[in-house]
């Protein structure tokens, strides 16, 4: 058993400094397309390339509905004039309604409502040494009975509707619903069909939304901080000064 103690010590501290300092390591986030000025033909071509209507034009500018982006990269790859792209991970919008009591201690019940596994996997990473959500007072709860936050991933399938509603009802008030991932926000590639609701807002009232397909762990962490009033929501429109994606 001593080997594990040594092994644990030898690994050192890996945990991100976020939210106290921005995380700059490579590969922590896929980024999102950003709004920007583009020539009209290019703009229309780009909008046509987007399979989920995440891109649109407003007054000749490219605007991005992050809630719909599925990271297909069609607007940046294989396109002559790529869309502006921006890294970062503070994407969550909405507001925390829990009040001050829960700022430093929040229990989260994660519910999979038809997720492809990626969002769920990113939530799992949060508990790992790199993100260690426990250091911020966030805990994954095995039961909704003791949970303050219902963190829902997946588009909300018809056959999970009952279980999801039951889980929400089982929670004590005040309670917050965080919808994680493009599928949970807009249905993503699955859209809305007879088996799948096109986002969980058709089932539950959503307080905080995290875009991304899947949102990186830091984006989910940002959403939790937002829900407890410890972070500001994402800006309405991301700035154009994005990096270029290959």
């Amino acid at each position: 058993m001593t080997q594990w103690v040594l092994e644990g010590l030898r690994a050192g501290i890996r945990t991100t400094r976020y939210p106290f300092a921005p995380e700059t390591a490579a590969g922590v986030s896929p980024g999102l397309p950003a709004a920007g000025e583009l020539a009209r033909p290019d703009l229309e071509r780009l909008i046509a390339r987007c399979p989920t209507a995440a891109l649109a034009s407003a007054d000749g500018r490219l605007v991005v509905d992050a809630r719909r982006c599925v990271h297909c990269f069609r607007c940046v790859r294989g396109s002559d004039t790529p869309a502006p792209w921006q890294g970062g991970y503070e994407w969550a919008t909405g507001e925390g309604t829990l009040g001050k009591t829960f700022t430093r201690s929040l229990h989260i019940r994660v519910v999979d409502a038809g997720d492809c596994g990626a969002c769920l996997h990113e939530v799992k990473q949060l508990a790992g040494p790199y993100y260690s959500l426990h250091r911020l007072g966030f805990f994954i709860s095995p039961t909704p009975r003791q949970a303050d936050v219902l963190l829902v991933v997946g588009p909300g399938t018809d056959q999970m509707r009952e279980a999801l509603t039951k889980a929400y009802k089982a929670m004590p008030t005040p309670r917050t619903v965080i919808a994680v991932g493009t599928c949970a926000l807009s249905g993503g590639v699955f859209g809305s069909n007879f088996a799948c609701g096109g986002g969980i807002s058709s089932i539950l009232p959503v307080d905080v939304e995290v875009p991304g397909n899947p949102p990186p762990p830091l984006a989910i962490l940002h959403a939790l901080l937002l829900a407890t009033g410890r972070a500001a929501p994402a800006a309405k429109e991301r700035q154009t000064a994005g990096e270029r994606m290959p």
Binding site: P144, A163, A167, T173
Partner: peptide
């Protein structure tokens, strides 16, 4: 406090 009465938590079975 308001008392809420909900069914027991059963893991979401029907």
């Amino acid at each position: 406090r308001r008392v809420m009465r909900e069914e027991q938590w059963d893991g979401g079975v029907h």
